[in-house]
Simulated assay, not measured.
Amino acid sequence: MSHTGTDRATGRADTGGAAVEVTGLTKVFGKGAAVITAADGIDLTVPAGQIVALTGRSGSGKSTLLHLLGAIERADSGSVRVGDTEVTALRTRRLAAYRRTVGFVFQRFHLLPALTVIDNVLAPVLPRRAGFDHHARARELLEAVGLADREKAHPAQLSGGQQQRVALARALIAAPRLLLADEPTGALDSATGTAVMDLIVRLGRAHGTTVLIATHEDHVADACDRVIGLRDGRTVADSAGG
């Protein structure tokens, strides 16, 4: 599902999601007897705007695939294309610029404890110029995640679910065309995790964002358009979600 709309707070047009194309993607860690093939020739195509769950046991390659898509790790071979960008061909300076166009949500929230909620949301965009009102978008996102009244609080004053909602708002502040979530409900109880997952799906659909979520939880996979199973760095299943 691709989407183009307008941001209420800024009047800025949303760009919708980016298609993802992965070909022959390989990543190996370690050497000799300790070698681990975390991505073993993965081929994968994700249409723009699709919400995808990556499932599999610990060590199956879910996190590595997300790290390769987000350019946190560099592939040993193969290619990653996100929208019009050939990610695996980028040099160091261009890689940094590419990473700023991708939203990341992690299991451990990685909020900055000394900053307020709104400053945590603003952190990814404050060092650079943008064609929109940073603060207006941050407040819109905090309203969307149900934390409009907590913008001056610090992370230690929030529950785990609230911290993950702040992390989601932070991931969306730059209107990414690709959102990568690595076990985003793993540190939460089931009810809170379900609420956060519903929020990720709702906001992803609202902006037409392409979303890939690494998870081992069935309720997370069921909320997605598509479920891709991994084992030993290879895709072993691919089916509709729900």
Results as ranks from 00 to 15, higher is better:
V87N: 00
T88C: 03
T88F: 06
A89T: 09
L90G: 07
L90N: 08
L90D: 10
R91M: 11
R91E: 15
R91W: 12
R91A: 15
T92G: 12
T92I: 09
R93S: 14
R93V: 12
R94C: 03
R94P: 02
R94K: 14
R94F: 06
R94N: 14
L95D: 11
L95N: 07
A96R: 13
A96D: 07
A96S: 07
A96V: 08
A96C: 01
A97H: 12
A97D: 12
A97L: 13
A97Y: 05
Y98I: 05
Y98K: 09
R99Y: 09
R100M: 04
R100N: 10
T101F: 01
V102F: 09
V102S: 06
V102I: 14
V102E: 08
V102R: 11
G103S: 00
G103W: 01
G103L: 00
F104E: 13
F104Y: 14
F104R: 10
F104S: 10
F104K: 09
V105Y: 06
V105S: 03
V105Q: 01
V105L: 08
F106I: 12
Q107P: 08
Q107C: 07
R108F: 14
F109L: 10
F109P: 09
H110V: 02
H110S: 07
H110K: 03
L111M: 07
P113T: 11
P113R: 10
P113H: 14
P113Y: 11
A114V: 14
A114E: 14
L115K: 01
L115A: 01
L115P: 00
V117D: 04
V117R: 13
V117C: 08
I118A: 04
I118R: 08
D119Q: 04
D119W: 01
D119S: 03
D119L: 01
D119E: 15
N120I: 11
N120T: 13
N120D: 11
N120Q: 12
N120A: 13
V121S: 03
L122Y: 07
L122D: 11
A123N: 09
A123D: 13
A123S: 15
A123Y: 12
A123R: 10
P124G: 05
P124L: 05
P124R: 03
V125F: 02
L126H: 07
L126P: 02
P127S: 06
P127E: 05
P127Q: 04
P127F: 04
R128N: 11
R128K: 10
R128P: 06
R128Q: 12
R129K: 11
R129Q: 12
R129M: 03
A130R: 15
A130Y: 13
A130D: 06
G131D: 14
G131Q: 08
F132S: 00
F132H: 05
F132W: 15
F132D: 02
H134D: 03
H134N: 04
H134L: 06
H134I: 03
A136D: 10
A136L: 06
R137A: 05
R137V: 01
R137M: 02
A138H: 06
A138E: 06
R139H: 07
E140Q: 13
E140I: 02
E140T: 02
